[in-house]
Design a protein around this nucleic acid. Structure first.
Lengths: 166, 166
DNA sequence: TATTGTTATACTCTATAACTATA
DNA sequence: TATAGTTATAGAGTATAACAATA
């Protein structure tokens, strides 16, 4: 119950204390937010994402073209529905992604001979070259965040995050 | 260099081994993805977000109406630009959020008497009631993820995530 | 019937740029 | 000049639903 009523009471109290003046920026009360997994996940991801998208056009790992190319490079002939499953997005969302990759010349759809419903995805030499470049930039960018963690801390962060995955 | 070439070589090898047949779902090679902070952050957040948005309409903590109401409850008279700073989004993105909150009757804009450029934001009794309900649902939903962590693990996860914040 | 891919559509979140009113 | 808020616009990213081709 404390959890639920806390901010409400704080609000009522602050209301009496602050009938209209400006609030200084460092006295802002974040309430329950800092204790929520969702809030902290989102803040962290936004920070990393902004840094990545400055360093790498389309460089959000796991969404966007980067994750797709990694999967095609490691699993030639992977189907779109498998991409969807492993990037945890809908198969319909994969279509536009693959379209982009194909238009850019980084991958190809090839109708699978053994099951003509399936499109096998194959990375091209241009795709591999592009991916290698993206990986370099990605590594450099992630490296700038490594300073925040001791090596075993970084690993534990990854381990804990992976438990949340479906 | 291993880092960069790893998946490329794996790709070339797999290409020889797999000239067109289906790949089984559990032999998919995720390449460098599992070692990337960005990929793991995104997967974890997607998983949590999907769970939350089933339990709570508009319930992504920190984005959306929830974070806004928490800030208004704890800091009556907070300005929109302060909301933007603490939710780490642009001031332009705050406008639509506050519009929604005002239309729903959960908060009010009040022109600040000491600086007529500023809109102070104030939560309404209806907003407080709604927020209390959202917090209950949020707690229940986050609680279902707590099973994944020992108490000190959860705390360390939060601590590590907070280091990434700008 | 079930699966793979596709199209069409819409919604949320965020950003940028240009504007206003106030300071 | 600078700041707070607004408007207009655009771009990701994702989802759902309905559909075609194939199994």
């Amino acid at each position: 119950m404390d959890y639920v009523m806390g901010a409400v009471n704080a609000g009522a109290m602050a209301d009496l204390e602050n009938p209209g003046g400006a609030l200084s920026d460092d006295q802002i009360d974040l309430g329950v937010l800092p204790d929520l997994l969702g809030y902290n996940l989102r803040s962290a991801q936004l920070a990393l994402q902004r840094s990545l998208s400055k360093a790498i056009p389309g460089g959000d790992p796991g969404s966007g073209i980067f994750g797709l190319l990694v999967l095609c490079a490691g699993n030639p002939g992977i189907s779109q529905i498998q991409v969807a499953r492993h990037l945890t997005i809908d198969k319909a969302s994969v279509v536009a992604l693959v379209d982009r990759g194909e238009e850019s010349g980084w991958l190809q759809r090839r109708r699978a001979p053994d099951d003509r419903r399936r499109h096998g995805l194959f990375i091209t030499p241009e795709g591999n070259a592009h991916l290698a470049q993206m990986k370099l930039r990605m590594r450099n960018c992630e490296h700038s965040f490594d300073a925040l963690f001791a090596p075993e801390e970084r690993q534990q962060l990854l381990t804990l995050l992976q438990r949340i995955r479906p």
